[in-house]
């Protein structure tokens, strides 16, 4: 019983979304909401992966394209495209993903450290890889993905 209890406690709830054929996950407590694609106001002189800002119930929220952030080829937005709004280090940022439709529990003991590169994404941005029954879930390290200082530097450099 005790053994089982501990194992249960060591599960994390993860929101799953797609980029191309890969499935990625962020912990549910970091996710504020999932929004449909909407009109984004472009912010000039920011890195290319910063798509701009949206009005999220009165709060102006920056939005980045996760494909562009990871250096993956960008695609046209479709009906399935979603903006996953996350909160990390007091920053609220929307992540544009191909689709988001699942919440699953991932046992911590199934998470392995990430290989150097997964589907073209550098290990730096990853927290680990979870092997579940028939799927492979890549867990993101949002602290690294959303680095305000890096954005500021890139903004200054690109002009």
């Amino acid at each position: 019983m005790e053994q089982q209890g501990r194992e249960l406690a060591q599960e994390i709830k993860v929101i799953v979304f797609q980029l191309g054929s890969e499935e990625y996950g962020v912990e549910v407590h970091q996710v504020l909401s999932i929004e449909r694609m909407q009109k984004i106001t472009r912010v000039p002189r920011t890195p290319a992966f910063v798509k701009g800002v949206i009005n999220l119930r009165g709060v102006v929220t920056p939005v980045i394209d996760l494909r562009a952030r990871f250096g993956l080829p960008e695609v046209e937005y479709t009906e399935d495209t979603r903006i996953v709004v996350v909160s990390v280090n007091d920053m609220e940022v929307g992540l544009i993903v191909d689709a988001a439709n699942d919440v699953i529990d991932v046992p911590v003991n199934r998470i392995d450290p990430p290989p150097a590169v997964v589907g073209g994404v550098k290990a730096d941005y990853l927290r680990g890889v979870a092997k579940l029954d028939d799927r492979l879930l890549v867990l993101l390290n949002l602290d690294r993905v959303l680095n305000a200082q890096e954005v500021a530097q890139l903004s200054a450099m690109s002009w």
Binding site: P44, R45, P62, D90, M91, A148, V151, S155
Partner: peptide, 8 residues
């Protein structure tokens, strides 16, 4: 613009 985009 939020803390993510501090100095544009």
């Amino acid at each position: 613009l939020g803390r993510y985009l501090q100095q544009v």
